[in-house]
Design a protein around this nucleic acid. Structure first.
Lengths: 345, 345
DNA sequence: ACCCCCTATGACAGCGCTAACATCGAGAAC
DNA sequence: GTTCTCGATGTTAGCGCTGTCATAGGGGGT
């Protein structure tokens, strides 16, 4: 039923009786072609099952419709949701995405960047603001718009969408203090630059209230998991019995802390307050529900794509940096009430 | 420092004083070029910062180095891990991956397939065995190897790697029965074909033991989440008070069930046995740890790529279908002991 | 009636690479 | 010495599309 050779532009053109370039135009700038021809061409394309050859297009125009995306992890829930936003937003455009995984290595990011830039992408989405010097330079020279996602600061390469991890950590810490907790601790895994900034937010806020102690901080560079959260908490509580609340670098850890607390019969929130980060869906359903910092991952992906497409197509004008903010979702895991305090002091 | 125009094959060739094709060969079939030249060419490539143009390569050879991947969801943890396996395995090859998201729609899968095939991919990875008739036909005619992942049956399009969801569900159900549970229930979300087969496994096994009741089955087509697990369990236990164990379609649901059980002070495992599916990392750390069916997601991704590459490069010969199997991870959530039974009867 | 300009279309070259065939020595076989 | 073979390299001709410039025809202004 289908011929061997795939239909080409020329085939379509021949069938309609026009030249190839007219078909090409009908596809790319329909308003440059008369409505009658346009319709005939559309019919021919349909009959022949013509599909444009992207390689030929790219080669001839030295422009691609590929948006390169570099994220540090595909398994991390947080990035998965960002990705979902990216894919969803991309669906209504005719850009393709090329995803690469830096695995939290600035070096790998750099080499990925080189590969991407070699292919003249239409746009680039990179994670965070901590590119290597070389990467930064490459990005600044890139012949396409670039969005940095997840974080914001006042020194963007180009476009930027995210929120302040430092501010978010400050707010979470303040919340724990306001609830009446005094032995504030921090549990962190991975400790990528974003995690570091969260720790700094915690440290500054706790110090400011005279409640910081290095002995109540535990971190590791290992990837964060629920199991790791349980382990770190076990280690921390043995070492620092004055601990009465933990701010966790993310929700996996927080869940692990809660499980371990339950195992040890430590009542949450009475003896131990818990606050996570990202507000994954499960936090609201946990028993008790776990306080967390809501972040807007899906929106981040969507915005990144929209900003990029606007910039590529020149319809820009929107702001170059978008702060998506965050929100402290207060739940039972940090809800220390007066009666709980009685036993404590 | 860098010239405007990017270096091309011809530039490299000129610098070494050979013809372009020799450089091309040095890159693609090094053993067809004398070692001396090979070395000189490598040096020139380095000096010029030459990066091959994949569009030109594709156009000239009418072969791409792109492997198309169609999965139903990017946010689902299970597929994220499969993806990780795919990306990892791909890293040591020079293939690129083109990821698309069918969102559990056979129709969308079909149209994605058409787009992919239009680009003559080097290989294709698709999820499951329930393609639409048209999709199936497209895949069978595809000019490249195809791997179906996640499931196995004896009617593969080409290659296949996965496990039997039916068998896994049977084994899980048998486990609950062996533990002494009698009021077996099933909680399922999404209810894609794989979930359906799990349900069938549950039904057949429970029926076989005379323990099946339709009233203890609850399903929905909504995406599964922890919260949904809690809700479905709440609904089910109200409707079917004789329920004493649930087999959950996946771990998110199982976790939700556990949380809801804790909220209602239903002791697990004494009054309620829980078994999940997939054995996500957190199941072992939950309190109590939750029994689940271990599946090998990461390995699935790796195998899929390896099979594909072998098939593409003709070094095949390996089996066409790989059964990765599964394992029942027995944990406390289903550990009904004799003393628990006393109160029950 | 003249020129100008604008719209719709076409001719041609070339993007950077590779397939296919051609060429050229040099050693092997006789 | 002649022929054959084979490994190393070159020549030629596109792959399918788009950028650029050219062309034809049809108003509108004066």
């Amino acid at each position: 039923m289908r011929n061997f050779r795939k239909a080409t532009l020329a085939d379509v053109a021949a069938r309609v009786g026009v030249s190839a370039i007219t078909v090409s135009r009908a596809l790319r700038m329909p308003d440059k072609v008369s409505p009658r021809l346009r319709e005939e061409i559309a019919r021919a394309i349909d009959d022949l099952g013509y599909v444009p050859n992207p390689a030929a297009r790219t080669l001839a125009s030295s422009r691609t419709n590929v948006i390169g995306v570099i994220i540090p992890s595909v398994t991390n829930n947080v990035f998965a949701e960002v990705l979902l936003g990216i894919y969803t937003a991309l669906e209504s455009t005719d850009y393709d995405i090329q995803l690469a995984n830096s695995r939290y290595s600035a070096l790998r990011e750099e080499s990925l960047l080189k590969v991407f830039l070699g292919q003249k992408p239409a746009g680039l989405i990179v994670t965070g603001i901590d590119q290597s010097e070389k990467s930064r330079e490459l990005l600044e020279r890139a012949a396409c718009p670039v969005v940095q996602i997840m974080e914001i600061d006042d020194n963007p390469v180009d476009l930027m969408v995210g929120f302040s991890h430092y501010d978010a950590a400050c707010a979470a810490t303040r919340h724990l203090i306001e609830q009446g907790y005094r032995g504030l601790g921090f549990i962190g895994a991975r400790m990528d630059p974003r995690s570091q900034r969260r720790l700094r937010g915690f440290r500054d806020t706790a110090s400011g209230a005279g409640l910081f102690s290095e002995s109540r901080v535990i971190t590791t560079t290992a990837a964060s998991t629920v199991t790791l959260g349980a382990q770190l908490f076990a280690e921390l509580i043995d070492r620092a019995p004055d601990l009465d609340a933990v701010f966790c670098n993310n929700d996996d850890l927080a869940l692990g802390v809660m499980f371990e607390a339950q195992r040890r019969r430590i009542p949450v929130p009475a003896w131990l307050g818990i606050c996570g980060f990202n507000d994954l869906e499960m936090m609201a359903t946990a028993e008790p529900p776990i306080t967390s910092v809501r972040t807007y991952r899906y929106e981040m992906g969507r915005h990144a794509v929209n900003m990029l497409v606007e910039a590529i197509e020149g319809s820009g004008g929107e702001s170059k940096t978008i702060d998506l903010g965050f929100e402290i979702r207060k739940r039972q895991s940090s809800n220390l009430v007066a009666s709980d305090l009685i036993g404590k002091f």
